[in-house]
């Protein structure tokens, strides 16, 4: 019972971190928000590892901490321009974003959840499918962050957030084999490295005449 409460608390904090990232104008705060989010997910993994006596979840938590938390944050921060705490994205209208976000999440998540995921029985926590709502929320929050912003960094953070949602889904529902999970982590890391090549060249994305239609 008390552990259930802690799991809910961690999940809710993850969700709050997702909204925190969505509401930021400054890139550095977003990257830090992503770091906090990854640490929270690792914490959820460690907690469930303790409850289930599962070595897989323990390794998974450590992987999240090292690859997501430390390496990706490091990669993103070192690619920032020199005065990195002043880099911000223009034209971010927070109330508008939040309202559209709410509509998007309500439509996407609650419909998907109530049709499909509420009938899933998580292996990690028997008989409690409502935690599965949080990974879905995080996932769609990531997609929304990508679609709603124009800056390269923000979109990378959105992608990492989307992946975080998947990891959280795997943690709550049933951890996929650790070999595959590890390759997924490495893939995401490689993708962030590749994308950071572009952040140096091109930091915002607008419509282009040649790429129309």
């Amino acid at each position: 019972m008390i552990y259930d409460g802690i799991v809910y608390l961690i999940s809710a904090s993850i969700l709050v971190s997702a909204f925190y990232i969505q509401g930021q104008r400054y890139i550095m705060s977003m990257i830090r928000g992503q770091l906090v989010q990854s640490i929270l997910i690792a914490a959820a993994s460690f907690l469930l590892a303790y409850l289930e006596n599962s070595l897989d979840l323990l390794i998974l938590g450590a992987l999240i901490l090292i690859l997501r938390g430390i390496l990706i944050t490091y990669m993103l921060e070192t690619r920032m321009p020199r005065r990195k705490s002043y880099v911000f994205e223009e034209g971010v209208n927070v109330p508008y974003l939040f309202l559209v976000d709410l509509v998007f999440i309500v439509i996407a998540v609650f419909i998907i959840y109530s049709i499909i995921f509420s009938t899933l029985v998580p292996i990690s926590q028997p008989g409690n499918s409502s935690t599965l709502l949080f990974p879905l929320l995080l996932f769609f929050q990531g997609i929304f962050l990508i679609t709603s912003r124009r800056s390269t960094y923000t979109q990378i953070v959105g992608y990492v957030e989307e992946e975080n949602g998947l990891v959280l889904l795997a943690i709550f529902l049933l951890p996929v084999p650790i070999i595959i999970e590890a390759s997924v982590f490495l893939d995401v890391l490689a993708l962030v490295v590749i994308s950071s090549v572009i952040t140096v060249e091109k930091s915002t994305h607008e419509r282009m005449e040649e790429l129309r239609g």
Binding site: G23, V94, P95, F98, L99, D101, L102
Partner: peptide
Amino acid sequence: DYLAVAFT
């Protein structure tokens, strides 16, 4: 912004 957070 503040109110949007509360509303959200």
